[in-house]
Deep mutational scan, measured.
Amino acid sequence: LHIEINVNGLRIELHNVSEELAERIREILEKVDDREEARRLAEELIK
C-alpha cells in the first residue's frame, strides 16, 4: 500500500503501511508546529 500524506506543507510518502498507521502518523505530525521537526519525527516513525 502506498499512501501520501500532507502535513503543514510537508509531503510524506509511506510505503507498505496500513491506512490506520498512516492516519496515526498524520495525526501525530499535525501536532508538531516546526516543519523540520515534523520531518525528523516522520523519519523516526517509519523506520
Rank of each mutant, 00 (worst) to 15 (best):
L45Q: 04
R24Y: 11
H15N: 05
L41T: 07
V7S: 04
N16P: 03
E43M: 09
K31T: 12
E13I: 15
S18Q: 04
R11Q: 14
R11M: 15
E23W: 07
V32Y: 12
I12W: 03
E43W: 03
R39E: 08
E27W: 02
E37K: 11
R11I: 15
K47N: 12
D33P: 12
H2E: 03
N8K: 06
L21P: 00
E30Y: 06
E20Y: 04
L14A: 06
A22S: 05
L41A: 08
S18A: 05
E36S: 07
E36V: 08
A42V: 14
E36D: 13
A42W: 08
I5L: 09
R35Y: 14
E27V: 11
L29T: 02
I25S: 00
E19Y: 12
R35C: 07
A22D: 01
N8W: 00
A38V: 14
E27C: 06
L10M: 14
L45D: 01
L45A: 12
K31F: 10
R40M: 09
A38Y: 02
E27D: 13
E44N: 10
E23F: 07
S18C: 03
A38R: 04
A22W: 07
E13S: 12
N16S: 05
E20S: 10
E4G: 02
A22K: 04
V32E: 08
N8I: 02
H15T: 06
L10W: 02
I3W: 08
V17D: 02
E27P: 01
R35T: 13
G9P: 00
K31Q: 14
L29H: 01
I3A: 03
R35S: 12
N6I: 15
R40I: 12
V17Q: 04
E20W: 04
E36P: 05
L10Q: 15
L14H: 00
E23A: 12
N16I: 06
I12Q: 01
E23L: 10
E23H: 14
E37Q: 12
E30S: 13
E30R: 09
E13R: 14
L29V: 08
L45N: 01
E4F: 02
G9L: 00
A38C: 06
D34Y: 04
I12E: 01
S18D: 08
R26A: 06
R24I: 10
E20I: 08
L21A: 10
K31S: 14
E20L: 09
E43D: 12
E20G: 10
I28P: 00
H15M: 05
V7A: 05
N8G: 14
I5W: 00
R26C: 02
K47R: 12
E30F: 08
A42R: 01
A42P: 01
L45E: 07
E27A: 12
H2W: 02
E19G: 09
I25D: 00
L10E: 15
A42F: 11
R11N: 15
V7M: 06
K47C: 06
E37W: 03
L10K: 15
E13G: 03
R26P: 00
L45H: 05
D34A: 06
D34C: 04
H2I: 15
L1Y: 02
L14R: 00
E19Q: 13
L29K: 01
E43A: 07
L14S: 01
E13D: 04
N16A: 07
N16Y: 07
I25P: 00
I3H: 05
A42H: 02
G9Q: 02
H2Y: 05
I28S: 06
L1T: 11
G9D: 14
L29M: 09
A42G: 04
I25N: 00
I28Y: 05
E36H: 10
E20M: 08
L45G: 02
R24H: 09
L10G: 10
K31M: 10
K47M: 10
E19V: 15
L1A: 11
V17W: 07
E20A: 14
I12L: 08
R35E: 13
A22I: 14
S18M: 03
E36I: 09
R39F: 10
E4L: 06
N8P: 14
L1M: 13
R39T: 11
H2N: 09
L45S: 03
H2F: 05
I46H: 04
A42Y: 08
L41P: 00
K47Q: 12
E43T: 07
I28C: 06
R40P: 01
G9E: 05
K31D: 10
E37P: 03
E44A: 11
N16C: 07
L29Q: 01
N8M: 00
I46N: 03
E13L: 15
I12R: 00
L10C: 12
V32L: 11
N16T: 04
E36Q: 09
V7L: 06
E44P: 01
L21V: 14
L1F: 04
R24M: 15
E20H: 14
E44M: 08
H15C: 09
R11Y: 15
L45T: 08
R11L: 15
V7I: 15
R40N: 14
V17T: 08
S18N: 08
E27G: 12
I46A: 15
R26K: 13
S18W: 04
L21W: 11
I46C: 09
R35F: 14
L10F: 03
H2K: 06
E43G: 08
L10T: 15
V17R: 01
L21I: 13
V32R: 05
V17F: 06
R39K: 13
H15G: 03
I46S: 09
L1K: 13
L29G: 01
E43K: 04
D33E: 14
N16M: 06
V32T: 13
I5V: 06
A38L: 15
E37H: 11
L1Q: 10
V17K: 02
R11K: 14
R39L: 15
I3D: 02
E27R: 14
N6S: 02
I46Q: 11
L21G: 04
I5R: 00
E4V: 15
A22G: 05
E44K: 07
I3K: 03
E27N: 13
L21C: 05
R26T: 06
R39Y: 11
E4D: 05
E30A: 09
N16G: 13
I3V: 11
N16V: 08
L41G: 03
A22H: 05
R24N: 09
I5K: 00
L41W: 06
D34I: 07
R35K: 14
E4C: 11
A22C: 06
H15P: 02
R26H: 05
N8D: 15
K47E: 11
N16H: 11
H15V: 09
R39V: 14
E37M: 10
R11S: 14
N6G: 02
I28G: 02
R24S: 09
E44L: 09
I25E: 00
E20K: 09
S18F: 03
R40W: 05
I12S: 00
E43P: 03
